[in-house]
Design a protein around this nucleic acid. Structure first.
Length: 655
DNA sequence: AAGTCCCACGTC
DNA sequence: ACGTGGGACTTC
């Protein structure tokens, strides 16, 4: 045996759980193979070729038996750093999924022509961008706030300030985007890189404009899902060049391969777009946190109002709040709908006080009307007060499995025979959530002389001028008004809050505070049909008490994020095997279900503590890999596992 | 996924 | 005694 044996340890790019481990291959002398390269390797009887990434280069193997050889190199670029490999492995374990699936999210598909072009241009230009001086600080934050936030190992909850900033081009951006741009400038001035992860295309548009205002174009890379795949690949390659760079993008950007990484800024982490829709369903928040832990860089959660996860970390002292010292917040007035209205059946109408105020404000400029439109699942609510109907045993959502049948809990499957509303003791459950979309045309008719601008998911409007107009937008699609809106009316509050999702409260707070942040300092927002603690919180702009209260409730009811949770579904035999194995470890708190979700397919939900988290998900990953069977005919049988994503869990119930 | 091995069951 | 069809098993 030659002493200079070269062995490549490879993670295969395959979706098969049973191949979610490493394979060693001999490297033939004819091949230039380096760490992180994509290679072609023979698999099973040398008849099929698979691709994979080189995880390690070794001089020996632990494999007993002969090794096959790497057949070829796919491109001479090291696409996967050791850091990325470590991250992918960690996320796979955390989500009980395959490392290869995580790498598929992190590394864009290859485009040979784009890659060639990039390599040629790289040899020619080695230009170094000069950083302009820092922007005239919008101020408002403590001295050295950004330097402290970017220190190694720092974890922060940055409260973005309200308002609209105007760029030199005349375009408007949210002031928070300028704040983040200042942080980016600080990172570059330290010759380090920064990742800015935003939820949607809309955010990319605003943050790109803000960043271009303060940093050179060569120092900015974009990685978002709406761009052409070849372009995305080139941007990924630019990250690998090693020069300090700011990467702006949607959730996949959190994996951007960067050498001198100062930190990651995660914007609006409660936005549902941060939750990955592909297996193993990692959330940007969790990826960012693990990457922070692995590399000891900084992480910043930035938002106008924070959600339950960040609040929980803040309570525990795990993240440090960074708040503006001087800021403004528009006035908020809660208004009630006509007496006796029931949110679950009546279409939301404009409260008379808000109607009058909107009419007046329209003389001064644009008025925003925020509506909540559909997208939420059918469910049950108390006929008397509209409170959502939940199972008394586990607090899962109640559903009517068929017409005229007793409601069943869709988490634990137990029928609820004598339901009582926790809020008002009402006895009747009714379906809810109809007719909200109609509001839009009703309101338009009430203001016949003003232009009406609609902005929603399909019809995206980014900006409106300062001229009077009625801007009706669904939550999250609010255009930016030049100079800020003259007033805002926040409708459908009750429907948003009673939505049958665990994220309802966070979403609502975020939607409201986001809309309020778009107002002029002198303007007023009218919050319709919301009462109690939420109304108090929004009116005062102080959310801590409400969020702490909600966290306390979640603790009592054993709901995330106070506890960890995983849904396991698949063929009944596999699910019960997994259940037995998990119960035998003694590491899980309880099991809900099984519930039959299809012919022969069942689902259980397990709950477990954070302390036992890595043990449970690690075990779950091993079980999934072990129980996966490939059969030539019929669909391969495997477990489908969703970890910690209560909202995805809700949507799975609708399938 | 897909080829290989192996054992149970069937037929003469 | 010999075929064959379907499961389980393995993939460096």
């Amino acid at each position: 045996m030659s002493p200079t044996r070269r062995i490549a340890r490879v993670i295969l790019e395959t979706r098969l759980p049973q191949l979610d481990r490493l394979f060693d291959y001999e490297v033939p002398p004819s091949l230039e193979v380096s760490l992180g390269m994509r290679v072609k390797v023979p698999l099973r009887q040398r008849k099929t070729l698979a691709t994979g990434f080189v995880v390690a280069l070794l001089s020996d193997t632990e494999h007993h038996g002969s090794l096959a050889s790497v057949s070829d190199v796919v491109g001479p670029v090291s696409l996967m750093s050791s850091e990325l490999w470590e991250l992918a492995e960690g996320i796979a374990s955390r989500q009980a999924g395959s490392a290869a699936d995580v790498l598929r999210l992190a590394i864009p598909p290859r485009y040979v022509r784009a890659e060639k072009k990039w390599r040629e241009s790289r040899e020619v230009s080695g230009s170094v961008a000069t950083l302009p001086p820092p922007p005239e600080g919008s101020g408002g934050y403590p001295e050295q706030a950004w330097e402290k936030m970017l220190e190694p190992d720092a974890r922060s909850a940055l409260y973005l300030d309200h308002g609209v900033s105007e760029l030199s081009s005349g375009e408007s951006v949210p002031r928070g985007a300028m704040t983040v741009a200042e942080v980016a400038h600080t990172a570059l001035s330290q010759a380090k890189s920064l990742v800015v992860v935003v939820p949607t295309w809309r955010h990319v548009a605003f943050y790109e404009a803000a960043l271009r205002e303060v940093i050179p174009g060569e120092s900015l890379a974009l990685l978002h899902t709406d761009m052409a795949p070849a372009e995305r690949y080139v941007e990924y390659l630019r990250c690998l060049e090693g020069r300090p760079i700011v990467v702006l993008g949607t959730r996949h950007a959190v994996y951007a391969p960067l050498h001198q990484l100062a930190g990651m800024v995660v914007v609006d982490d409660t936005d549902e777009s941060h939750s990955e829709p592909l297996a193993p369903y990692p959330h940007t928040r969790d990826v960012a946190l693990l990457r922070q832990k692995n590399t000891r860089c900084a992480v910043v959660f930035a938002s106008v109002v924070h959600g339950l996860s960040v609040t929980r970390w803040s309570e525990q002292g795990y993240v440090t709040p960074v708040t503006p010292t001087e800021t403004f917040r528009a006035r908020v007035i809660p208004t009630e709908l006509a007496a006796g209205s029931a949110a679950h059946q009546a279409p939301a109408r404009l409260p008379s006080q808000a109607f009058r105020a909107a009419k007046e404000a329209l003389a001064e400029g644009p008025v925003l009307i925020q509506v909540f439109r559909a997208g939420f699942s059918t469910g049950l609510a108390c006929a008397e007060c509209g409170e959502r109907g939940v199972c008394r045993a586990c607090h899962g959502p109640l559903r009517l499995m068929a017409q005229g049948v007793r409601p069943h809990c869709s988490w634990c499957g137990v029928p609820d025979t004598a339901w009582r509303c926790e809020a008002c003791q009402g006895k009747n459950l009714v379906p809810r959530g109809q007719g909200i979309g109609r509001t839009v045309s009703d309101i338009g008719k009430a203001f016949p002389t003003v232009p009406v601008i609609r902005s929603d998911g399909e019809n995206r409007v980014l900006r409106v001028s300062s001229h009077p107009a009625l801007v009706i937008a669904t939550r999250g699609a609010e255009p930016l008004a030049e100079g800020g809106y003259a007033a805002a009316v926040l409708l459908d509050g009750a429907a948003m809050l009673s939505r049958e999702s665990l994220g309802a409260l966070e979403d609502s707070l975020h939607a409201w505070e986001g809309a309020i942040s778009l107002l002029r300092p002198t303007a007023t927002a009218y919050l319709a049909d919301v009462t109690g603690l939420p109304a108090l919180a929004v009116t005062s702009g102080r959310y801590e008490q409400l969020l702490r209260h909600e966290l306390g409730e979640r603790q009592k009811l054993k709901l995330p994020p106070a506890t960890r949770i995983a849904s396991i579904s698949g063929p009944a035999s596999l699910v019960s095997k997994a259940r037995e194995a998990l119960e035998a470890t003694g590491a899980i708190s309880d099991v809900l279900g099984p519930v039959e979700t299809g012919p022969g397919v069942v689902r259980i939900i397990i709950r477990f503590s954070y302390a036992q988290g890595s043990r449970v998900t690690g075990e779950l990953r091993a079980l999934r890999n072990k129980l996966a069977v490939g059969s030539a005919k019929g669909r391969p049988e495997r477990l489908h596992i969703v970890v910690d994503d209560a909202d995805r869990l809700d949507s799975l119930l609708n399938d």
